[in-house]
Design a protein around this nucleic acid. Structure first.
Lengths: 190, 190
DNA sequence: GTCTATACGATGATAGAC
DNA sequence: GTCTATCATCGTATAGAC
């Protein structure tokens, strides 16, 4: 073949990376196959050597993103309350608010995922439940585990609707303080 | 004129109502002007007698929705902790999770609003700050006011990503319990 | 595997008849 | 104000040359 053995895999990975960032930035639906491939230096026609359809890409993007986020937030075996607090601190940060392309997929594409009825939604459900299980084990409180996840997702969405950095910071800080209080209250009760 | 005086206003209202529901259900971007007008029994061409552009409609939809939600959640002068809890109970309900078309615009179109740079985003910011002010006054805790808003938004988004009603219910119930605990803790400290 | 060219439908928006 | 007809553009996806 005219192309090296792993060239295809590398290209597919590049398309996936670029598409994920673009989708989180501007939404998945308005993203065109043409512009998507141009972003990695190729033309639209080459897309279908790597993905069966745009829907196929959506599923791949969601799975890639969720796997990455899970590894970042709860994949580690040595999870502890302190580590969760550190993860949440990073999640509820101004830099995360202002960098949707590099951040978590849930606040960016959550509603699109919720509307999807295919495997993308099932992946999201599975990942969220997995994170809930991990956090619930450490926190010892299943309600708080769901509440913390919802708090993080909601705070980021609300902060991103704010126009000024000051207000964005205000929202994520408030959520972080609340979460810390709740986690610390549990610790005190141990 | 061939049409009664308030006919235009009525039609505009109908388009607005229908578009808001459709946008919350399937997203605003993928909604076509043609299908949008067909939903109220008209053809696509008539759209531009009521809105300058699709962007103009987006702005109108967001403002309409936010005004309505604000009235429902914090517009009343007789706001109290108990009333906030009742509002939150309705917000964090299975019926709300399963009826995006009739529910709050923030979890449904939040990311699209956040990406908008025009008046729609400013409207959202203003409305969220207004709700925060109202809840903050009653709760006497500004952090908790932001946290409660974020909790509601996030829980609804997370619940909508769940595939089964049981898991959806689980998520919103957990968030409701947490919020009640926090509000009651404040009341006890009064 | 990637390119160019193309088929085909849907989109946002406008013009003119009624 | 609403309709039909139309334009220009862009969308996804495919076919064939290299």
């Amino acid at each position: 073949m005219r192309y090296s053995a792993d060239h295809k895999e590398q290209t597919r990975r590049a398309v996936l990376d670029s598409s994920a960032a673009l989708a989180k930035e501007n939404g998945f639906a308005p993203m065109g196959v043409d512009g998507l491939m141009k972003a990695v230096g190729l033309t639209g026609g080459a897309f279908y050597s790597h993905f069966a359809s745009k829907d196929d890409l959506f599923q791949a993007v969601v799975e890639r993103e969720l796997t990455r986020s899970l590894a970042l937030l709860g994949g580690d075996e040595s999870l502890s309350k302190e580590k969760i607090k550190r993860c949440v601190r990073g999640y509820l940060s101004l830099s995360h608010v202002q960098d949707p392309a590099g951040g978590c997929v849930i606040p960016a594409l959550g509603s699109e995922i919720a509307r999807a009825e295919g495997p993308a939604r099932l992946s999201a459900e599975h990942w969220l439940c997995e994170l809930h299980r991990a956090w619930g084990e450490v926190l010892g409180d299943e309600d708080l585990a769901w509440g913390a996840i919802a708090q993080c997702v909601g705070a980021l969405m609300v902060a991103r609707m704010m126009a000024t950095p000051e207000r964005q910071q205000r929202v994520v800080d408030a959520s972080y303080q609340l979460l810390c209080q709740q986690v610390d209250a549990l610790t005190a009760a141990d």
